[in-house]
Amino acid sequence: MKLTLNVWRQSGPNTPGKMVKYDLPNVNEDMSFLEMLDVLNETLIAKSEEPVTFEHDCREGICGSCGFMINGKAHGGFPKTTVCQLHMRHYKDGDEIFIEPWRATAFPIVKDLMVNRSAFDRIIQAGGFISVPTGSAVDGNAIPIPKSNADRAMDAAQCIGCGACVASCTNASASLFTSAKIAHLNLLPQGQPEKLDRALKMVTVMNEEKFGSCTNLQECEATCPKGISIENIAIMNRHFVEASFMQRPAMSEGGAG
């Protein structure tokens, strides 16, 4: 099939970008979306033009590297599908396709369709972990975990950190991402000691990183390739408010020894 692509080209974070039109005459319907872009890039290189930069690695929907807007929808808007898992059979001959990078203050554009998502790492650094030193763990079966809790934690833990939630949210909010981590850890018994601290710190950093607020639009849930539920956002809100009222400052513990 024949497609017309409009791709956002921008050579660096501080240079202006624009949509550029490309005609692609031979697209096979079994190609993945990224393979279609590979073909475009090979033709661009042949013409001594710069290929389109886009991020990708696993190409099987799990690493969270890939992602951009296709026709105004994050990852193309197909249920539970990342762009690397999206196949061209969803498009038809003659279609015109618009491809744009994620847009958010917290995700500055690096080049073309590639953005900088390190803000997500900093949110995790704030408390998205359980402080357990290597080698100090008790037996894996020492603390039984109700299956339903383990399942809910797993539902939230599936987040691949792709950023589609931020991209699709009108407010560029990172609520779904942040809440998925808070819920994952706070639903498990191992996560309890740091539960309030975690909510407090991760939300604080989420705000400092200049993500927008959540107005419960649900766009994020709809385009999240892992189907993370906004129920997690409610959990985050609850734990955060509880933490704001209940959290006690930690005592400093020095002393001889």
Partner: peptide
């Protein structure tokens, strides 16, 4: 053997039986 313990303690949500064990 230690790996599993370590990962559970880190919050890795391994599959569980109804009784709560791994």
């Amino acid at each position: 053997v230690n790996i599993i313990d370590q990962c559970v303690a880190q919050g890795v949500p391994f599959a569980r039986e109804y009784g709560g064990t791994l």
